[in-house]
């Protein structure tokens, strides 16, 4: 009766080790790539097949851009904090508030311009077809309407209130 049990255990050990070997060997490239590039650049490298000097260029541009981006975010946050402080003591839109809103909008516009410029620069380092794909995908991710959540949907409280106001 021992031999069948030994064969049973051997089979289970074989299944487990096969699972482990295949899993480790197929996931190793992902772990290696993430360790080498970080998760953000790993995606660029794999998805758009960027390698060698082109990837070094992408990495340099990305690091330069993200550093500048953080600085712009800091400036925008500063404006928002100042605006928040003013709004807490104001009862109408003062010239100072207007100026802060303008400054914050200018910074955000600059941010968008830099971001799009960065996308174009990155796409130029890729193969033409990959660069086009990259631009299309990034533009879809970053230029979707930010006002879609402000438009009342049918059946929502806000659309019902709006209809009530119209009929008065």
């Amino acid at each position: 009766m021992k031999r069948p049990w030994l064969i049973t255990l051997l089979g289970l050990a074989l299944a487990l080790s096969t699972t482990g070997v295949i899993y480790v060997s197929r996931t190793a490239p992902y772990r290696a790539l993430e360790a080498a590039c970080g998760p953000d650049l790993a995606w660029i490298k794999k998805e758009f097949h960027v390698a060698g000097p082109a990837f070094n260029g992408v990495r340099a541009l990305h690091e330069k851009y993200t550093a500048a981006c953080m600085e712009r975010c800091r400036q925008i946050d500063e404006k928002n904090r100042a605006l928040s402080a003013l709004l807490s003591v104001s009862t109408n839109v003062t010239p100072e508030i207007e100026q802060l809103l303008t400054d914050a909008a200018v910074l955000r516009k600059q941010c968008h311009v830099e971001m799009l410029g960065h996308f174009f620069e990155i796409s130029r380092l890729m193969a033409p077809e990959q660069g086009r794909r990259y631009l299309q995908w990034m533009q879809a991710q970053t230029l979707t309407s930010t006002h879609s959540t402000m438009i009342p949907q049918a059946g929502s409280k806000f659309s019902d209130d709006a209809r009530t106001l119209e009929h008065r």
Partner: peptide
């Protein structure tokens, strides 16, 4: 990775 990249640039 995709999420990390998009959030890094935007």
């Amino acid at each position: 990775w995709r999420t990390a990249y998009v959030q890094a640039v935007n």
